[in-house]
Each structure stands twice: as structure tokens, then as C-alpha cells.
Amino acid sequence: MDATASELRKELGELLRRAAEVSVELDRAEGAAVGVPHYSAIEARAHELGRELSRRIQARRMGDLAAATSAAACPTCGDRCEPRRRRRRLASIDGPLEIDEPAAHCPRCRRGFFPPPGGAGPRRP
């Protein structure tokens, strides 16, 4: 593991530790942490926070992919089409979220398609 990855792991660990602290403080401030809770309540809150983190990671990664997608060849005619970022709601295993995804439209074929990340390749003759 290089120095950058090591620093990022350390930063992530610190951010997760702080997120746990803030979550417990928030529960106390909102009156959700009163008395001695059953362990299942503690576990459920932790899973809720984990699912929220998962949805944010998914949205960020999809946004990065959408931003990195360049012109793509239409699967039917091969014309180069510029993708646009399209906002879409989806249901993940961790709950609903909105993502950005690349979507292209070929005016020649009058069809939409979802281009893969990477270049368009050569235009078909």
C-alpha cells in the first residue's frame, strides 16, 4: 500500500470514528437514547447509518462514472453521440437514492442508450 492509500485509510478511520460519535450525540439530543436500550436498537441505528453511507458512496461513484464518460458510438449505426448526465432514482439494497448516469441519444437512429465508460471507438462506415 502506498503512502497516499495509507493516509486515506487513516482519514477514513477518523471520519468513521467521528461519525459514530456524532450519531450517538444526535440520538441523545433527539431523545432517542433514553435509559438502557436493548442492543437491537443500538444495532439498528448503526445499520441505518451504514446504509446511509453506502447510498452516498454509490451516488458518488456513479457521478464519477457519468462525468468520465465521453462520446460513445451508437450501438446501431456507430455514429458518435455525446452523453449527458441524467438524474435517476433507483432502489439499492441499502434503500432508495438518486444517481447521475450517462445517457446518450442518437438522432439518426432515434434511440437512447447508456454508453459505457471510455472512448467511442471508430465510426462505422
Rank of each mutant, 00 (worst) to 15 (best):
A103S: 13
V36L: 15
R85Y: 00
A66P: 02
E98Q: 11
A68Q: 12
I93M: 12
A73E: 00
D27I: 01
D27A: 15
A46L: 12
A44Y: 03
A41C: 04
E52R: 09
R60G: 13
S92R: 03
S23E: 09
Q58D: 15
A72C: 02
A66I: 00
L26N: 08
E43R: 10
D64E: 15
S23R: 11
E82K: 07
S23P: 01
R61G: 01
R28C: 07
M62Y: 11
A68T: 01
T76N: 07
R80S: 10
R61E: 13
A66T: 01
A104E: 00
P75K: 02
H38D: 14
L15W: 06
A33V: 04
I99W: 04
M62R: 13
D64A: 15
R28D: 12
G31M: 08
D94T: 11
E82P: 00
R84M: 06
A72K: 05
A67C: 03
D94H: 14
L53H: 11
R85Q: 06
P102H: 00
R56Y: 00
R55T: 05
S23N: 08
V34Y: 15
R80I: 02
E98G: 04
C77K: 04
A67H: 02
L65C: 06
H47F: 07
A29L: 11
C74M: 03
V22I: 15
R17Y: 10
V22P: 01
L26S: 13
V24F: 01
L15S: 06
S92M: 06
R28M: 12
A104C: 02
A20M: 07
D100M: 08
R89S: 15
S40F: 05
G35W: 05
S70G: 13
R55P: 02
I57Y: 12
A46F: 13
H38C: 07
L26A: 08
L90V: 09
R89N: 12
C81W: 02
R87G: 04
R60Y: 13
I57R: 14
V24M: 02
Y39V: 15
E43T: 13
G63P: 02
Q58K: 12
T69K: 01
M62N: 08
P102G: 00
Y39Q: 14
G63M: 03
I57G: 09
G95T: 01
H38L: 13
R80G: 10
A46K: 09
L97E: 10
P83G: 05
E21F: 03
C81S: 03
E25N: 08
S92I: 05
P37R: 06
P96A: 14
G50D: 08
A103M: 10
S70T: 14
R89E: 15
A66Q: 02
E52W: 05
I93W: 12
D94L: 04
S23G: 05
A41S: 13
A68E: 09
P102I: 00
A32T: 08
R45K: 07
A104L: 02
E21L: 09
P96H: 12
R28W: 11
A59Q: 09
E21K: 09
R84E: 06
C81T: 05
R89P: 11
R17C: 08
I42L: 15
P83F: 06
A67F: 01
R86I: 03
A19M: 14
A68K: 07
E21S: 09
